[in-house]
């Protein structure tokens, strides 16, 4: 793919930053503007600028993608689990094909296949990506820093009980642990066991106790 670079002055207005003299064409963003601009931040601006300039994407594409990133949250995953707890048929479909089951609820699970791994009373599941940072972000939002940390990735495959204990999750003796390492183009989502004491709860009530960490497997739903 070749794109001629005109080498001349070009439009800077695509992301709200203009060269408008003192007209100040963009809303002031104190968090950004008062912070020092690191080389990597400048590189990021430069890349965003160049891919637009070369027609590889549009400013609207960047804007829309940023909106999507902001909109993604663990609420989607929590809702899938709550629905699965209430509806055994839905649960079966979720375990068969997460992306299709999410679609039933109007949730876009993205193009990468996601597999649900269901806890049982004697087996607990936990997910990791030891090689990089694969994560079911369409259903969980951006991953926490610890999920991407060397400490979590290195240790959870070798001493899952010790790591879970650091998270405050003490599994009983007799509970088996299965760790899922996302080494290929498959993402994982844990479906915990519905805790007792939630009989008669609504989907919203149930979803509220399914936290992000429950969906990773580093916590269990807690009934207050």
């Amino acid at each position: 793919m070749t794109h001629a670079h005109d080498g001349h002055e070009h439009e800077h207005g695509h992301d709200g930053h203009g060269h408008g003299g003192h007209a100040h064409p963009h809303p002031r963003q104190p968090d950004i503007e008062d912070a020092p601009l690191t080389w990597h931040m400048a590189l990021t601006e430069a890349m965003a600028e160049l891919i637009v300039q070369k027609g590889l994407c549009t400013p609207a594409d960047i804007h829309r993608t940023l909106e999507k990133i902001d909109a993604a949250s663990p609420a989607a995953g929590s809702r899938l689990v709550a629905r699965a707890w209430l509806d055994p048929d839905f649960r079966a479909r979720l375990l068969q094909d997460v992306n299709a089951a999410a679609g039933e609820l109007g949730i876009d699970a993205g193009g990468i296949p996601i597999r649900a791994v269901a806890d049982t009373p004697d087996r607990h599941n936990v997910i990791v990506c030891t090689l990089c940072s694969c994560y079911p972000r369409f259903l969980l939002g951006g991953s926490p820093d610890w999920y991407k940390s060397k400490a979590y990735r290195a240790r959870v495959v070798r001493e899952p009980r010790a790591v879970l204990a650091e998270f405050g999750l003490h599994l009983p003796d007799g509970m088996q642990i299965e760790v899922h390492d996302s080494t290929a183009e498959l993402r994982y989502l844990v479906v915990p066991v519905r805790p007792s004491g939630t009989e008669g709860w609504s989907e919203d009530q149930l979803a509220a106790i399914v936290t992000r960490d429950c969906l990773i497997g580093t916590a269990l739903p807690v009934v207050a």
Binding site: R158, Q176, I177, D181, T183, L186
Partner: peptide, 29 residues
């Protein structure tokens, strides 16, 4: 084909301290 392969923790780490039935699953070409 990419296969889901289950390993016993005790086969991966001779000093594994947890439940001997604990496992790890990876997706391998």
């Amino acid at each position: 084909p990419v296969w889901r392969v289950r390993f016993r923790q005790t086969t991966l780490w001779p000093d594994y301290a947890g439940d001997p039935r604990d496992t790890v699953v990876l997706d391998l070409y």
